[in-house]
């Protein structure tokens, strides 16, 4: 269930990114200078990045117990004042 919900959130966010890219392209059409990196190439860079990071994060999350990872990540985001 945990991985299903997380993947669903990632997919929905991914869809948002694709839509936002298309929207930005349509709005800026004429000004869009993709001579050094085309939009389609950039989209693939984004897709590969998302897939790779999702894979890595999934492995990372399952290597640790949920409570442990919660504690580690929370503390590393300067949660110390909350843990007094």
């Amino acid at each position: 269930m945990e991985i299903f919900i997380s993947l669903l959130a990632i997919i929905l966010c991914w869809v948002w990114i694709e839509c936002f890219l298309i929207f930005s392209y349509k709005v800026n059409i004429g000004y869009f200078d993709d001579s050094y990196l085309s939009l389609s190439k950039f989209k693939w860079i984004i897709r590969i990045t998302i897939i790779t990071l999702t894979f890595l994060i999934s492995i990372y999350m399952f290597l640790f117990q949920p409570n442990e990872i919660n504690q580690v990540i929370s503390m590393c985001f300067n949660l110390i004042l909350n843990n007094k």
Binding site: E2, S6, A9, I10, C13, I50, L53, T54, I57, Y60, M61, P66, N67, I69, N70, I73, S74, F77
Partner: peptide, 14 residues
């Protein structure tokens, strides 16, 4: 559930 906090911060990072 406790796993939500960890995943939330991991997804922010991703």
């Amino acid at each position: 559930p406790s796993w939500v906090g960890g995943w939330a911060l991991a997804l922010i990072g991703l």
